[in-house]
């Protein structure tokens, strides 16, 4: 039994290979892009709005509201990255209802890739907001003694992001697979429903943590110079 879809290898040439994770991810990308393309093909700006458009508007504006609540005042700047994180993880979790489907987020490679993206995106957004030196200065604040701890924090939280998502998703799929062999009728359905819930929660946690990291990186200087502003929440 495969722990992750990485172990389903369809084609390999040296270290280059085509495994189940990548194929599933492409399928999800295709489905999401095509769905978005189809729905946004005829967007109504006046008159009656279609149900699909309304649903997408609710999702997009909901994500924007969440980003704003975290403390990022211009959510549209971060919507592409954070929204895609949420939608990808959520879609990957939702598709667990498809029999034989193994979520790409159940692969540590995928979650590590996503955590890596967050790890790179946080300083990039911070530098864009505060400038290169301004962002680097955040590592030696409040005192330079904190520099190693800040660096450790950056690495450890990235690792935690990857392992948390992987553990949850993989365990969910694994439990269902095991239960199917033991009690094949009703109980796996309940667990699948629970897995759906867990997946959505994990998608929310992953994207909201990423938003919090970005917020911490971008608004730190403001809190220092404007004491009235609320400090950004620390994870």
């Amino acid at each position: 039994m495969n722990l992750t879809s990485d172990q389903q290898i369809f084609w390999q040439y040296g270290f280059v290979k085509l495994n189940g994770t990548m194929v599933t991810t492409w399928a999800l990308m295709l489905a999401m892009s095509l769905g978005a393309k189809l729905i946004t093909r005829k967007l109504a700006t006046d008159g009656e709005v279609s149900r699909w458009q309304a649903a997408l508007e609710i999702i997009v504006t909901g994500i924007g509201e969440q980003i704003k609540e975290v403390g990022l005042s211009h959510p549209e700047k971060y919507l592409g990255f954070l929204g895609t994180l949420f939608l990808f993880v959520a879609t990957a979790s939702l598709c667990t209802v498809i029999p034989g489907y193994m979520p790409p987020t159940g692969s540590l490679s995928t979650t590590a890739a996503l955590a890596l993206c967050v790890f790179i995106a946080v300083p990039l957004f911070g530098m864009r907001q505060l400038g290169f030196l301004g962002y680097l200065r955040t590592y030696v604040e409040p005192t330079p003694i904190m520099l190693p701890f800040n660096i450790i924090s950056e690495i450890s939280r990235t690792l935690a992001l990857a392992v948390r998502l992987f553990g949850n998703m993989m365990s969910g799929a694994m439990i269902i697979a095991i239960l199917l062999t033991i009690t094949p009728y009703l109980f796996p359905i309940v667990m699948t429903a629970l897995g759906l819930l867990t997946g959505m929660v994990q998608a929310y946690i992953f994207s909201i943590l990423a938003a919090v990291y970005i917020a911490a990186a971008t608004v730190v200087r403001k809190t220092k110079h404007s004491p009235k502003a609320e400090p950004a929440p620390k994870p």
């Binding site: 991810t25 492409w26 892009s33 895609t84 990808f88 490679s109 995928t110 590590a112 890739a113």
Partner: peptide, 21 residues
């Protein structure tokens, strides 16, 4: 558990998905 080629590929996939969305 970590296949680094897959990690890079998934990161690229994610960036492509970001652009597509």
């Amino acid at each position: 558990l970590i296949d680094w080629f897959t990690v890079v590929a998934q990161a690229l996939n994610f960036l492509v998905l970001v652009w597509l969305l």
